Computed example of a mutant assay.
Amino acid sequence: MKVAIAGAGAVGRSIARELIRSSHDVMLIERKLDHIEPESVPEAKWVHADACELSRLEDASMESYEVVIAATGDDKANLVLSLLAKTEFGVRRVVARVNDPRNEWLFDESWGVDVAVSTPRMLASLVEEAVSVGDLVKLMTLRQGQANLVEITLPDNTPLAGKAVKKLELPRDCALVTILRGGRVIVPQMDDPIEGGDELLFVAAVDAEDQLRVALRLEN
């Protein structure tokens, strides 16, 4: 897969290395000359350009890339690149970094963003996930805010203990993805039992989350 990354700072370079390890073809676009360090990621193609300039993106053959990652430290630049990638070059998947959580509401399909990644929100979610028992924690937003990856750690005395997965009365537009139990990652089968202390990961539509809480006996 061909992936273009705008922003060759620490974040962009780290993403590039991970993608290259997975055998993807990566291009790094960087506006600041002093951030151009080809030796830091020698397997990537490096382009010195402003990713907000249409002509420079044309020169870089942006239309040939399947994924664009807007990873600069400037939210305005990330939004402009996302819009250009989607509307001018027909890029199939656009992922954008959100630097200031106050701007998160802008990062949606109207700006060409398929997935918005907010580091502060993700860190806060991980903290909540580590300390919260008995409530839903949103880990990630999917499909431009239409669905979320949510997690719950069931209390030891959950009334669901011993109940088979197939007996869970989950709402429509909600799916149990995996069960984390101790050091195990369990792909749930219909007859697998639920146990107290299980971490359950769901993909759920936003308007189904309240119904999910009821199904998991989190609300009376």
Rank of each mutant, 00 (worst) to 15 (best):
M1A: 03
M1D: 07
K2Q: 01
A8K: 07
V11H: 12
I15W: 02
E18N: 03
I20S: 00
I20G: 00
S22P: 03
M27S: 11
K32N: 02
D34V: 03
E37I: 05
E37R: 09
S40P: 01
P42Q: 00
A44D: 06
K45N: 00
E53S: 02
E53N: 06
E53V: 09
L54R: 11
S55Q: 12
R56V: 00
E58D: 10
D59G: 03
A60G: 01
S64H: 14
S64M: 10
S64C: 06
V68I: 07
V68R: 02
V68K: 02
T72C: 01
G73I: 08
G73N: 15
G73T: 11
D74A: 12
K76E: 15
V80D: 08
V80A: 06
S82F: 04
L84A: 08
L84P: 07
G90Y: 13
V94I: 13
V94F: 09
R97C: 04
P101K: 10
F107M: 08
G112E: 13
A124E: 14
A130M: 05
V131Y: 15
D135E: 15
L136H: 06
V137M: 05
T141Q: 09
Q144T: 01
Q144I: 00
G145R: 10
Q146L: 13
Q146Y: 09
A147Y: 08
L149Q: 10
E151T: 07
T153F: 09
N157L: 06
L160Y: 07
G162V: 08
E169C: 04
P171C: 08
C174S: 13
A175F: 12
L176Y: 04
V177Q: 04
L180W: 11
L180V: 04
R181K: 00
R184Y: 06
I186W: 04
V187H: 13
D191G: 02
D192L: 02
G196A: 02
E199N: 05
L201E: 03
V203P: 04
V206I: 14
A208R: 03
E209D: 03
L212W: 05
L216E: 08
E219S: 13
